[in-house]
Every structure is written in structure tokens, then in C-alpha cells.
Simulated scan of single mutants.
Amino acid sequence: MWRRGIITAVCALLLTLLLVMHSSVPNRIGNLGSLLETFLPWAGLAIPVLLLIGLLRRSATALIAVLLPIVVWLNLFGGLVSDKSAGGGNLTVLTHNVNAQNPDPATTAKDVIAAGADVVALEELAENQVSTYETQLKSAYPYHSVKGTVGLWSKYPISGVRAVDIRLGWTRAMRAAVATPSGTIAVYVAHLPSVRVNFSLGFTANGRDRSADALGEAIAKEKLTGVILLGDLNGTMNDRSLASITSQMRSTQGVAGDGFGFSWPADFPMARIDQIMVKGIEPKSSWVLPATNSDHRPVAARVEVA
């Protein structure tokens, strides 16, 4: 019983080390650290496999060893499994990457309206589809602004609109002040560069990382106390490369969500790369909406503006 399952026990120990020391996996070679952190929760799928092998082998050594990654995984992600949403809040916000190749933007716009948000951010707006979104959303959102491929629609007046330079050469981020009934807040909308997994280059995220740093710098200079970031960041809150943003803002999903809140890809979500983050504002609840005609799912949150 004790001698059997040594290999399984070693695998369990290696999995434990990977979970505990994920931040030590270097990014120098193909951004492997960021790639691991993007899908880190899925490492837990190895646990039931190891547990089953230990049971089949009737190995006490393996079963005891498997307890280690279970404890570590629960410590890292157990809090996400429970429902942390609370009642209250005085502002509902929504962000959605609508996909530049969306075959039916009009229906997607109607889905957005049906969500009932007060403030809506849309990313990946194709130039030939902007007018469709403007027409469809006009009745529900009298105030709006589009900068490059991102846009903001609001039930409340907006001002101070400007593009935010995220070191791309074209506009994929913007900032606006929204005059909510509870006070004026700064709302940032951003679509950071896409990342790819390439067998020769690894995790090609350098462009995303530079833009994340630039966005973090812009938010750090914001003079308004209450700040909301809405957008497709092409990265998860575990990814160290988004530290310039995550170090100063809170994810609504992390503190007021229900479940992991994966948003991409829409057909079978595997990662939370669409984010709603706040600073100086209290998150109350966060959720993922049903799929639209996009390859991303919309995400929404209810927050308290003081």
C-alpha cells in the first residue's frame, strides 16, 4: 500500500509546486509564465486524474500526496467557486467585445440593451458597423462616444472624452467622465492587443504587455476618485504582465462574482479575459451574460458609486 503509486505521488508533488510557484515560471522563454497563469485554474483537472489513479492502485502514498494540490488549488481558487454577490449598488455597467466579424450587429445591440446596464462599453467595433450600433442603442443610451475601435454608451451625460494612448499607433482605448446620479466617475474602455500561442515563438504577448503598462500609467494619473475599467484585456487577473493595472484596481468578478466568470471563447469559455475593474468604487455583484453573435460573452457588474 505504501510502496505502490510512487510515480503518482511525485506527479502530485510536481503539480503542487507548479500551483504554488507559478509566478516563478520565467517569461523569458516564450512568455511561458503568462501562458500558465492565463489557464492556471484548469491545472486542477489533473487532480481527479491523480486521485483516480491512486484509488485504482490502492496507494496510501499517492492518496496522501494528492491532498497537497487539492489544498493549494482550493486556497487559490476556492473563493471563486462560491457566490460572493451582494445586494445593493446604484450603477450597472457592462462590457462586450462585439467581434469585428459579427454577422448580425443589430441583434447583438438588442442583446446589450436587454441586459439593462446603465453604462455600456463595446470593443472591436468595425468601422462599417459603428452606425448600426449607434442607431440601435440610441433609444436606450442617449449619450455615447466612439474612439477608434472602442465606444462608450451611457444613460447619463458624459464629458472629458479622449483617446488613451496604449502604444499601438491606432486607438483602442478611451476615457470619459460619466455624471451618474451618485457622482461623476471616470470610465476607461480598452481593448488590449491580442495574444497568440505559436509553437516557434511561444506565447506572443509582448504587445499586450506594453499596452497594459501604458493603460496602467494612464489610470494611475486619473484625477477623479472613482474609476471603472471596462474592456477586453486579453489577459486574466492571474497574469503577472497585467500587474500595472491589477496592482491598483480590483476585479469585480474576484470580489463580487459567482463562479469563475469565464468569458472567452463564447461557445466554451475557458478564460476570463473580459474585465470590469474598479478603484474607489465598491463592487456588489458581477456576472457573465449569455452568448451573443460575438466570440466573447458580455460581462456585467453592479457597483456602488459613493
Rank of each mutant, 00 (worst) to 15 (best):
A218D: 12
A306K: 07
V164G: 01
H144F: 13
D83I: 07
L201Y: 11
A306N: 12
K155N: 09
S211R: 05
G33W: 04
M249E: 11
R162S: 11
I7C: 07
W42Q: 13
Q275M: 15
W2E: 09
A109H: 00
V120M: 07
D83Y: 10
D104H: 05
S85F: 04
L201N: 13
K221T: 12
G235H: 13
N75A: 15
S263Y: 00
M270P: 04
S182R: 10
S263P: 14
Q248K: 12
F39V: 14
L76T: 15
A179C: 05
L36K: 06
S194E: 10
V146C: 09
V299G: 00
T246G: 04
A173I: 06
V49K: 01
L18R: 01
L168Q: 07
S139F: 04
K279R: 15
S24N: 05
D267Y: 10
W170Q: 13
S294G: 14
L125E: 11
P48Y: 04
E222F: 02
L52S: 07
V119M: 12
T16Q: 03
K138W: 04
S241Y: 01
Q129F: 08
L94V: 15
T180G: 00
Q275E: 14
L152I: 13
T61M: 11
V299F: 09
T108I: 08
V120R: 13
Q136T: 13
I53C: 10
D165G: 02
Q129S: 06
S294C: 11
K155H: 03
A220W: 07
S23F: 06
S154Y: 02
G202Q: 05
L94R: 14
R162P: 00
A218N: 01
T149R: 14
K155C: 04
L56R: 15
A212L: 01
N102C: 03
A121C: 14
L74P: 04
G226R: 03
A100F: 15
D295G: 08
P41Y: 02
F199C: 08
P105D: 08
E37S: 15
A100D: 13
A65I: 10
V93P: 02
R272G: 11
G44Q: 02
D295S: 05
T225Q: 11
L91E: 13
F260K: 09
N102M: 15
L91G: 01
S194G: 03
L224E: 09
I166G: 00
L18G: 07
L55P: 08
A266Y: 11
L45K: 05
S182Q: 15
R57C: 14
L125H: 08
Y133D: 09
A291F: 02
T95M: 02
L17S: 14
Y143S: 00
F260E: 05
G160W: 13
T132Q: 03
L51V: 01
L168T: 09
N31D: 10
V66P: 01
R172W: 01
R302D: 04
N90V: 15
L224W: 00
V161Y: 12
E127W: 13
T16G: 11
S85L: 14
N97S: 04
E127P: 03
C11S: 10
I29N: 06
R162H: 13
L137R: 03
F262H: 10
R297C: 02
V161K: 08
D232T: 10
K279Q: 05
